[in-house]
Every structure is written in C-alpha cells, then in structure tokens.
Design a protein around this nucleic acid. Structure first.
Length: 107
RNA sequence: GGAGCCGGCCGGGCGGCCGCGGCCCUCCUCGCGGGGGUCGAGGAAAGUCCGGACUCCACAGGGCAGGACGCUGGUGAAAGUGCCAGGCGGGGCGACCCGCGGAAAGUGCAACAGAGAGCAGACAGCCCCGGAGCUCGCUCCGAGGUGAUGGUGAAACGGUGAGGUAAGAGCUCACCAGCGCAUCGGGUGAUCGGUGCGGCUAGGCAAACCCCGUCCGGAGCAAGACCAAGCAGGAGGCACGGGUGGCCCGCCCCCUCGGCCGUAGGGCCGGGACCGCCUCCGGGUAGGUCGCACGAGGCGAGCGGCAACGCUCGUCCCAGAUGGAUGGUCGCCCCCGGGGCUUUUUUGGCUCCGGGACAGAAUCCGGCUUAUAGGCCGGCUCCACGA
RNA sequence: GCGGGCGUAGCUCAAUGGUAGAGCCUCAGUUUUCCAAACUGAAAACGCGGGUUCGAUACCCGCCGCCCGCU
C-alpha cells in the first residue's frame, strides 16, 4: 500500500477540520471527511504543535503517524487531519496503527 | 595506589521484511507507471553571538552622529575571547588557568563605619609652653606642636633601619620597592636587564561619562532573475524626473521625445507624460524554473615553519527536501543497571527484565557559545608506598 | 531569515551601584454573640551561571523562559 498524499494548504486544513467528524484518542485528535471523489487518493494532514517537543520528536511523530496510516487505513476516499499530542511519541507502534485504522474506517 | 590538569577522537554494529527523497539507465500499455543502479543529516545540523562569500539597492568622496574593538608578533578571505607563539600582571604546592590601551587631559563616583575619604584628617594618645591645685611618680584649665601609636574601613598619602627632635615627621641619610628623564645592551616588537640623575610619592573605578587609536553603507536566498496564471480599482498625501541610504556638505552621474551643431566622445535649445513614492480601504494570485550544491571542499603523502598555517603532488565527488525525504518494525551482537541460578570469596558462566545520550540540513562557508548516555587514545603534575 | 522587549513577595507593579518597597492575598492578634469591615503585627521575592567593583537587582558576557514586530 502506498502513502497518502499530504495536505499542505491552510485552506485544506480548515476544510477538513471544520466539516469533518471529530474523534479523540490518547495521542491526538482526528478529523475525518469523505473525499470529493470516492476513488481519489486519500489525503493526510499532520498538525504537530511546538509544545509536543523539538524538531526531532515532531518529525518522529509525523513519520510514525504516516507509517501507521499506511499500515491499515483506507488508501482511497478519505481526507484526514490528525492533531498530535505529546503522547504520540511514546505510544507503542502496534497500538498506534490499530487506532488509526479503526478511527478512520469508522466513518 | 590515590587525587588532578591539558589535548585529540568516536558517538552503537550486522542482517531480514515493509517504506521515503534526489540523480542516472532502461522498459512499456506512455502515466500521477514498472524495473535496476547509486547517493541520502551532525559534532554540534542547535542558539543566531560574530565574520565572510553571494544577490539587490546605479557608483565612489568629506564631515557629524552612532556602533564595535583594544598588550606584541604571526596566521587567516574576515572576525567581539578566531587560531598559534610570545610579553606583563594575578591565582594555584604543581601540571596549568584567568586577565590585558589611557586615571600626571577633563568631569564624576565611594553607602556604613571612622577624628579624617581626595590639594585629607587631631577622637584617644604623645610632647612643649603659660596658669592653678596637690597626697608633688601627678591632676585640671588655656594656647600650640605632632601623622610615630591605637581603633574604623575595601581603601588612611611608600617599607626597614639609623640620625635627628620637646615629641615627631623624607626633616636628613643608607638600602629596598615604585615613578619620571637621559642613556647602554638583548629582542622585529610587547618588553626585559643595566647605569646615571631627579624629586621624595603622584590612590581606586573608564564592563561611569570620556580621551587616543583602528574599523564599520543598508538589506537579506522569503536576497534576486525568468516564466505562467489572474483581478478592480478607489481615497488622501508627497514630489514635479530620479539617485544618497541616520543627518549635512560639496561634487559627480544617469531618463525619454523633438530639433540643431559636431568626424566622434558629446554639446545646446525646447518639451515631458505614461508614471513614481508613502498611508488607508478593497480585489486577484500565492504555481513552476533558475539561484542550488565543485567548494576559502574532503582524504592521503611529501616539503617549509616552534606552532597556527602555507606550498606541491595524488585521489574522491560527498544530501538537496518544499507541510518539508533519510523512516517503521523484528532478530542477533556490544555496553550499562537490576533480579535469580550456578560451589563459598575473587574472577567467571547461564538466564530474565529495563535502558543506550544531546539532537534533524533548508543558500553556502569560517569561528564562538550552549546541550550531550557511554567510551577510546595521548601528554603532564602532585601525594603516599616500594626498589 | 532579520529585529525588539520583558523576567523582582502567591498576583499586579515600584525603586537603579550600598538598607529591596507598595497594594491585593495569606497567617496571627484586637474589636464583635458570630461573620464582614476596621486597626495592629508577621511571613514571603531580584530567572540561572560567570565577570567588573570594596560592594551588583542594576554595569558587561553567556544561558534559560515568555511576549511582540518585519519579510
């Protein structure tokens, strides 16, 4: 399975965060919305604020979340924003991947 | 064996599986595709404290203001404590470490204590003179002398000795320390050593104002260049061509159109808008390419130099993302800590659990500073013991 | 990337080279039947580490934290 596209523009972030379904987990808040076209490649936006750590841990969180998404979440049809919390750096990867798949697929 | 000083280096390794970014090659069903190869974070990539390269502001001068720096000589493209070597002063038993223009240009500052704190000062004390008293080794009163003694303070206007004196005092002398001038010698120099003379003392703080010397234009790769796409302008002010940057001065240079003159550089005359800048409101776009990865470059030899470093030769090509790649996960080994077992101690073996730092390139480079688990190497000092 | 400002009692702020102060808060006492108010008293601080100075909250240097601009 391939990695999802990355969201970049402020506009896209706003769209997903305002119109999407909000779900919480121990390591972050999820915003999930159906993509405009059903078989478009899914998009993933990662919001990792400065307060969770330095550049190293923030990058690490983003990499782990991307990998966790790739491991099981739908390849097509969803736009997702994950707002990370400091716990995301320490959560077991197995648990992280299951949580991401479950919360996205539940939509 | 213990304690310590200085310098340099590394900063997990190997292998599966699944992935990411750049470049090259290749295949086809040509696309937002497949395959192969290759490269892919750091010693600090960090903080942004200095300095440069580079780009734009069209370009150089003088003065003022402002800022930075400050022993000497090297080195380096440059630089606040860049680095190396040296000088002087201070600290430490020592290896070593820390500091560095000027206080006899001027202004200013010093709480409390203390008699007195900046051309210093009589509280006690000491001494002399006059008077009075007396138990006649003194006491009291008055006028003076004195910076040797006490006490205060961070700091009290050289130290020791002798002479001198009523008591004292650089008052005089000798030596020492320190200062100035002259001079000799060593050193490129900071400065060191010596000789002579002078006057006897000139305090501290410039990370207080300041003085002297040296240096400094501004902005920053979101610089800047090109391409593409796209909308809708309005109000006010400034200027009446622009340029100079914080200010001033003088000077110089550059636009366009028409006409005339000149071989030409250019000159003269006349005209000058589209437009420009600033502030506010409103609208559009925030895509691509270049800059952008060969450089004050890395590594290894040789030579020169005490060294920093330089020169020559050989060899290598070594990240270029753009919401931002260099990862996720598993196994083995290594290191550290803890528990259990093994025959007791030391050494060791087996097994289980936990941990392995600080930290992520964004134009590039040279420094500085700060963070950092654990480990390696080299040089040196002091103490104790032994030979 | 470039630049600026601020860290002082629990909170909001002063003082600027010598002893750090005010208001609110807290605690104790007086007063009151009790509470409040009032009065009296007390506790409590210069972000951290070096340096300059006799002496630093202030001056200089380096860190740490927070806030704000410009592009």
């Amino acid at each position: 399975m391939k990695h999802p596209r990355s969201l970049s523009s402020r506009r896209d972030f706003r769209r997903v965060m305002h119109t999407g379904a909000r779900k919480r987990s121990s390591f972050g808040t999820f915003y999930v919305v159906r993509a405009v076209e059903d078989n478009a490649v899914s998009s993933l936006g990662l919001a990792v604020p400065r307060r969770v750590g330095g550049a190293v841990t923030r990058n690490r969180i983003k990499r782990r979340l991307r990998e966790a998404y790739r491991a099981g979440a739908p390849e097509r049809g969803f736009d997702v924003v994950i707002q990370a919390r400091p716990e995301a750096a320490h959560v077991d990867f197995q648990q992280l991947a299951e949580e991401v798949s479950r919360l996205v697929a539940a939509q």
